[in-house]
Simulated assay, not measured.
Amino acid sequence: MAEKPEPVRVLYCGVCGLPAEYCEFGPDFEKCKPWLLQHAPDLYPDLVKDANAKEADKLSDKLKATGFAPVSTGDGASTDGAASSGAPASKEEEVKRLPGGKIKKKEKPEVIIEKVVRNRRKCITTVKGLDLFGIKLGDASKKLGKKFATGASVVKGPTEKDQIDVQGDIAYDVVEFITDTWPDSRL
């Protein structure tokens, strides 16, 4: 004889009220994380790993504060801080790390030219970074507008820096014009 089917038991989040497996799509996933770690650790194993990593970081910070953290000797070996010869550890090169382990490079002044397509046919060419070379953006937009017989204006970009928007697809032609007009700018 066939077994009688059992009803499905659904675990609902105590914070947002959604089923636990849908909390990540809810409005307050950050608030739900502690509850999920305690009540449903098998649904989100990445949260458990992150929590363990944070605890390990806190422990290593406490060890560094007390002076028992390992210090690198430069040859790959390490000694604990109490056994060091009293010389301060060499300063590590200060580099800004971004999420995902990427390293942010020092910004070099450069001109960036982008083509943005709107309404499937119309294009806008944006020129960013001319002001880093001492070029007045108002004068540059006038010259670009005259050269290509199109509208050009100085606008604030998404990063709150000024850029030049030129109507039309002139991305390839504007490179030659900029290098001829202002030879010291790097594209």
Rank of each mutant, 00 (worst) to 15 (best):
6 E>K: 09
14 G>C: 01
184 D>P: 02
9 R>K: 14
92 E>N: 07
86 G>E: 08
41 P>T: 08
126 T>Q: 06
74 G>F: 12
113 I>Q: 08
162 D>Y: 11
33 K>H: 01
102 K>H: 13
130 L>Y: 00
117 V>Y: 06
113 I>L: 13
172 Y>S: 15
13 C>D: 00
136 K>G: 04
116 V>K: 11
15 V>M: 02
161 K>W: 05
119 N>I: 02
28 D>R: 15
114 E>F: 05
59 L>A: 09
43 L>Q: 05
51 A>P: 10
91 K>S: 10
75 D>I: 09
46 D>I: 04
69 A>W: 11
7 P>R: 02
73 T>S: 07
165 D>C: 08
139 D>E: 15
179 T>D: 03
89 A>T: 09
89 A>I: 08
115 K>D: 13
130 L>W: 00
170 I>D: 07
184 D>W: 05
33 K>Q: 07
146 K>I: 10
165 D>S: 10
177 F>G: 01
16 C>S: 03
23 C>D: 00
102 K>L: 14
107 E>Q: 10
111 V>Q: 10
18 L>R: 13
100 G>R: 06
116 V>A: 06
79 T>D: 12
84 S>T: 15
58 K>Q: 12
162 D>L: 12
66 T>A: 07
114 E>P: 01
133 F>P: 07
139 D>N: 15
98 L>G: 08
171 A>C: 10
55 E>Q: 09
80 D>R: 11
42 D>K: 06
178 I>M: 12
3 E>L: 07
179 T>R: 06
174 V>D: 01
116 V>Y: 05
118 R>F: 11
94 E>A: 07
85 S>G: 08
184 D>M: 05
68 F>K: 14
77 A>Q: 11
139 D>M: 14
6 E>C: 07
98 L>D: 10
129 G>K: 00
97 R>Y: 15
58 K>D: 12
135 I>S: 05
158 P>M: 07
18 L>E: 12
26 G>C: 02
132 L>K: 03
102 K>A: 15
91 K>D: 10
2 A>D: 11
177 F>Q: 02
153 S>R: 13
71 V>P: 03
17 G>V: 00
38 Q>C: 09
161 K>L: 11
143 K>V: 06
11 L>C: 11
80 D>S: 14
46 D>T: 09
185 S>G: 06
174 V>E: 01
118 R>Q: 11
28 D>T: 15
136 K>L: 02
34 P>T: 00
9 R>V: 15
28 D>C: 14
128 K>Q: 13
58 K>R: 14
